[in-house]
Amino acid sequence: MPNTCSNYDKKCGGCPLLTTPYREQLAQKQARLQTLLGGFAPVRAVLGMKEPFHYRNKAIASFATQRGRLVCGLYAEGTHRVLPGADCLLQEEILNRTLAAVVDAARACRWTAYDEDRGTGLLRHTVLRASVDGKVLVTLVTPGPELPGSKNFCAVLRKKAPWVVSIVQNINPTQSSAVLGNREKTLYGPGFVLDTLCGLQFAISSRSFYQVNRTQTEVLYKKALELARLTGRETVIDAYCGIGTIGLCAAPHAGQVIGVERNPAAVKDAAANARRNKITNARFVCADATEWMMAAAGENLRPDVVFLDPPRAGSTPECIAAVNKMRPKRIVYVSCDPETLARDIAAFTRLGWHPAKFCPIDLFPQTKHVETVCLLVL
């Protein structure tokens, strides 16, 4: 497998462990987890990948003008300096080919890169999402709704990259670090790409939260379901559910599933994904997870299993207190940050919960990140 990248020495920052042998990467992650979590419960060996390259099904790249020419690539770490390139070792190869085609099509339309300082130009970023069967959703991020020649762009891109099934314009006029804005226009296709995960189909749009490593996500979800020990009768809560992936994977093995997510677009996608997979025992609530869990605990909702899959910042003390009040038989905590996991596990132990085991899965080879599943019981 390749282990050199033209942008690595230019401080791309996307894969800081690229020059570290993969076995050593896993050992480093194991040691970090053992330090943070080993005092609570046994930490299983990190489950790594057979092929730890080209695993990302999502790419985000930024446009710039360099030497009078439109380019696109990742920012150099800590800067807004674009490193042109479409040969990333982490992204699926279909995404690298798509990125090259997007740049060619944009040049054919004579589109210009957005200049933050002057407030001129058309293109800010592109976001690419790929399915397991090699279909791609292309999103173009622009500062305003104007995109002259968009039909021509779609025609040129489809000719260069016939695997592109949808093209979306996302409008982001803000001067924040957020890539995507809240307004979108579908320029071609359905506005999403269909992916298959754990035997279920999920519609992935530009703003959907969806794990970037499909292969390892299946390992992760199977481990989470194994720890949940569902028999087909349980009431399950999927907190921070996103587009419903964990909850819908659990639904065929549960009595009922309630997913909670504060992003309205994600909740809409989750409900559509339930219908797409003919799952009738799952419902999704648009609410802040902490607020909803507190209200539900106050109404004496007593689920059998709670899945917690919070963002990197972890859960909240109020949410943890609400879960404790619900007294489920099992809590399955899915974490993408060992530090916040250690903090939250400590909070649960103070309430009488016991972490039975930690099961780490390497979803992010070549980086310092690691995903961990923890089973908590009373």
Rank of each mutant, 00 (worst) to 15 (best):
T367Q: 05
R343H: 13
V46P: 13
A203E: 12
A106Y: 06
K325P: 01
M294E: 15
D288R: 05
I320C: 06
D238I: 01
R69H: 11
L90P: 04
L137I: 03
L194E: 13
I94Q: 11
L225E: 06
A27R: 09
N213C: 02
K50S: 13
T196G: 05
P143V: 06
A178N: 05
L197I: 12
K368Y: 14
V165C: 12
A239Y: 08
R23G: 13
A161T: 11
G259F: 07
A322C: 12
L18M: 15
V334P: 04
I60M: 05
V236R: 08
C109M: 14
V136D: 01
A250W: 02
E234L: 13
V323K: 03
T35I: 08
C319A: 15
C109H: 02
Q91M: 03
R67C: 02
L375I: 09
Y240V: 03
D104L: 15
P148T: 07
E146F: 02
F284Q: 11
S176L: 03
M326Y: 03
W292E: 13
C15V: 03
R81Y: 07
C319E: 15
D288M: 08
D133R: 10
R343A: 12
V141G: 00
A100E: 13
C88D: 09
Q25W: 10
I94H: 01
A289P: 06
T316F: 10
Y75H: 10
E226V: 11
L99S: 06
A296H: 05
I171H: 05
A203I: 12
K58Q: 13
K329L: 14
D195L: 08
P317T: 10
M294I: 14
A274T: 06
R124I: 01
P2L: 15
L378A: 12
L95N: 05
W292R: 00
R44H: 14
F307K: 11
K11T: 15
I243D: 02
I258Y: 14
C241R: 04
L123E: 00
A155P: 09
R81M: 08
T340R: 02
A108W: 06
R275A: 15
H125I: 00
A101G: 01
Y188N: 03
D115L: 12
T120G: 12
E234S: 11
T235E: 10
T245D: 07
P360K: 09
T231L: 07
L128C: 04
V102Y: 04
V373C: 10
D269I: 02
I237M: 14
R23L: 11
Q201Y: 05
T139V: 04
G119S: 05
S208F: 08
A254E: 07
F153L: 08
A239M: 03
A27M: 05
I258C: 03
P310E: 14
V43S: 04
L74H: 06
I361N: 08
T235I: 07
Q366M: 15
A130P: 10
L230C: 01
K223G: 00
Q28I: 05
I167Y: 01
G13M: 04
A64Q: 06
P252C: 03
T139L: 00
Q66R: 15
P2Q: 15
N96C: 11
V102L: 04
V334D: 10
L99F: 04
P365C: 14
S315F: 07
T112F: 06
H80F: 08
N7E: 07
R67G: 04
L363E: 01
L18D: 01
